[in-house]
Design a protein around this nucleic acid. Structure first.
Lengths: 147, 147
DNA sequence: TGCGTCATGTCAATATTTTGACATAGGCTA
DNA sequence: TAGCCTATGTCAAAATATTGACATGACGCA
């Protein structure tokens, strides 16, 4: 026991476990979205817009945890593919509100099914209570670091 | 906004919380390691080698959740800076075992202090029991996805 | 009104990572 | 032994993300 601690302290680190779980989730989502021709950032963008239409590029970037510049490229790609629309000029301020097209809504629906299946598989070993607790603890971790 | 709950199902997603916590941790580690001239992958490499000297490039890549090619670049950078050594040729197989130099050990010690401070800050809101539970749940999530 | 500050969108350049590919070394099996 | 499979290190190219910078618009305040 005491040897296990000194021999593998990494495995006892919450940070390492977080990194491990994130890598696994990212890989699984990537594999699930590939048949649909979507990357994870692209899906995140669709999901955010599906839940709150009219979000600006900067808002989407913050919600997807990437830079404005990266999200800008994602946005253009999705726009070129006809999954969302964006006004060429802003009528108020500089923010350009994006909205899903009907095609985008359909793509999001298909992607959502695939992603939710991944999440369900990830959480198979956890009770609903444990899942809620995990979510809240992760949120608390994020909040403690963003001050 | 009574529809705040139904309007934000993303906040109820464990996967999203995981992504959020990971982004916050990554950013905090980045900031903590920058004064030392280290990136997160570089630190991960040092930490792995500190705990298990002689790991090969491929082993380090798996442990740090990056590709072999990425770890190869990290390894070369650290080697050029004199933080680790690697034999030019393998005496057995193709794996080249890396080992920290005394300078590397010192850098790792300093970086370890900084990183542990970040992890402590991240976990301030959680009891030791909750921390252990969080770690185990994350490990269970990762394992469920890697089958 | 004028001014300072902040947020946004976007361009260009750079850095980083991944994808694809190939040669080599070792283990396994017929 | 020969043949096949897997793992490893590494090269080159492509994709992706970030950093730095700039112009523009909104807001607060004297």
């Amino acid at each position: 026991m005491t040897q296990a601690r000194t021999a593998n302290p990494l495995e006892q680190s919450v940070g390492y476990a977080l990194k491990q779980a994130h890598a696994a989730l990212r890989g699984a989502m990537d594999a699930a979205l590939r048949p649909l021709g979507l990357t994870v950032p692209q899906y995140a963008c669709l999901e955010l817009l599906g839940q709150r239409p009219g979000m600006s590029n900067a808002e989407l970037a913050r919600g997807a945890f990437v830079t404005r510049q990266s999200m800008n490229l994602v946005l253009r790609g999705l726009q070129d593919r006809g999954l969302l629309t964006r006004p060429a000029v802003a009528d108020r301020g500089r923010a350009l509100p994006s909205r899903l097209t009907p095609t985008g809504v359909k793509q999001l629906a298909a992607a959502g099914v695939a992603v939710r299946a991944v999440e369900t598989r990830m959480l198979t070993a956890l009770t609903p209570e444990a899942q809620a607790r995990l979510r809240d603890d992760l949120a608390a971790c994020a909040e403690a670091l963003t001050d």
